[in-house]
Structures are given as structure tokens and as C-alpha cells.
Nucleic acid binder design. Structure first.
Lengths: 128, 128
DNA sequence: GAGAAAATTGACTTATACGTAAAAGTCAAT
DNA sequence: ATTGACTTTTACGTATAAGTCAATTTTCTC
């Protein structure tokens, strides 16, 4: 066992470029092992990449994603830092809830756009 | 009546800079009237800005926002264009639904992060 | 109608998140 | 030993979405 993935396997699975995964490594988000110079991605790396991409899709910056990841690896030991972190979590939560509202509203708007299209299509269709 | 807003009123309300609003005008997203050179924003402009910012928050590009806005002002007259538009609407919808899923998952994860923080705080607290 | 405050413009700069090109290394199979 | 497919590193390039700055107007306020 002890399965690992090559970089291209993962690029194919997730639809990103090798450059992107190397960039994430440079930024300290993932730390694949090496055999010689070649990167070996473990399942844990793969899961991490999933998380990174999810964060990316909802508009987190690399820095923000890095912070979230850090908590798992290395939960801070100082009270002050913990409190700061929880503060940030609160903010993120509010941020995400706002985004969710934005999405709901925009989905509703897309319905309107579609309606408008259909109406217009019907208008045109009658004339032909 | 016939209320209008100055640019700074709106920057204050929405927390953006004047440069940003001018940028949106340059990009053709809004079209405030002028008295001399000074921009006069009507309620309709204000609502448009709200829409733009909402689109921005969920990660639409300026070009995408412009397209959505255009449909209201000027619904396309050609069938081909209408169908293309509806295609795009479908894609956006899928995109937004994916984002909504991402948000739900990330919110759940933030709960975990918070848990971890609280646990850690408790551990530290006992020692003091 | 003078001076302060606000608004405009254009040119330049910035940050993020990669893209791209070049040159060399890796490795398995022939 | 060579081929071919893939990978690595380094370095520079690019698009998006504004921000910054400085030099003018323009508009309020008294």
C-alpha cells in the first residue's frame, strides 16, 4: 500500500496546472515528500489540495487559506493567539454568511434574467 | 424630490473609494449624470452599485458583472445571442451552487477550528 | 469673491495568483 | 545509449481590479 500520487495525476483530477501545485508548495500550503527531486503526494496532501481549492473557489486568499490550515497542524499555544484566531474565525463566518446571502440573491436574479430571455424568445418566435 | 447622491456619500455608504466608482464608470458599469463635471448619482445608480458590489463579493469579474447588467438595459434581440446568454446563465447558476456548497463546508470547518481553539484554551486554562 | 473643501483626471503603481519559457534532470523501456 | 514522456528549477511575464499621487478644476461657505 502506501499509495501516493504524481503531480500530473493530481493536476488531472483537480483541473489545475503543475505550476499551481508547485506554487502552493512554495507558499507553504502543502509539503509533498520527495524521491530525488520528484514530488510524491500522499493522500493527506491530496485532501489538503481539495481544501485549498475549496477555499480558493469561495475567494479566500492564499494567506487566509494558509492560516486556516495552520490551525490543524499547529494549534497555537498562547492564549492571545488563540483569541485572535477565534476573532478571525468569527469574521470569516460573517463573511461567508454574507457571501451566502449574496449568492441567494444572485441566484434569484439569474432567474429573472432567464425569464427575460424566455419572454424575449417568445416575442421573437411569434414573428418568425 | 428627485434625490441624488454625491460620490462621497456613496463611497461612505459602501466603503469603497471614489477611484473605484470612477473605475466602474470607465468600465461602463454605471452612468451617473453630470452637472458640469461633477457626477450625480441617482437612486438607480445606487442600486446598480449595490449589485456590482454584490457580484464582486462573490467573485464575479467586471466583465461578468457588465454582462449581467446589460441584460436589463438592453436584452439582446437575436435568438443566437439569447441562447448564448441562457447558456451562460446556466453555467453561472452551477457555479454559484458549487460556491454555496463550498461555503457550507467551510462554515462547518470553521466550527471545527473554533472547537479546537476552545479545547486548547481549556487545556491552557487548567494549568494557570 | 476668496479661500477651503471636494471632485476630477491621467499616469503610474500595486498585489494576487498564477502563466510561460528555457534548460536541465529522471526514469523506464528499448 | 538513446528515446520519450514527464518533472524540476529559475526567472521573468501577465491579467485583474483597483490604489496612489499629483496637478488641476469646481463647488460650497462665509
Amino acid at each position: 500500500m502506501d499509495k501516493f500520487y504524481t503531480i500530473t495525476e493530481l493536476t488531472r483530477e483537480f483541473g489545475v496546472s503543475t505550476r499551481t501545485l508547485r506554487f502552493y508548495e512554495d507558499e507553504g500550503l502543502i509539503n509533498p515528500e520527495r524521491r530525488g527531486r520528484t514530488r510524491l503526494f500522499r493522500p493527506a496532501d491530496r485532501r489538503l489540495i481539495q481544501e485549498i481549492l475549496r477555499g480558493r473557489r469561495i475567494g479566500f486568499t492564499i494567506a487566509e487559506i494558509r492560516e486556516i490550515i495552520k490551525v490543524y497542524k499547529d494549534p497555537p499555544g498562547e492564549m492571545g493567539q488563540l483569541e485572535m484566531l477565534m476573532q478571525k474565525v468569527s469574521e470569516k463566518r460573517e463573511d461567508l454568511r454574507q457571501k451566502r446571502r449574496d449568492i441567494e440573491e444572485t441566484l434569484a436574479e439569474l432567474d429573472n434574467v432567464e425569464e427575460a430571455c424566455l419572454t424575449r424568445l417568445a416575442e421573437i418566435g411569434v414573428g418568425t
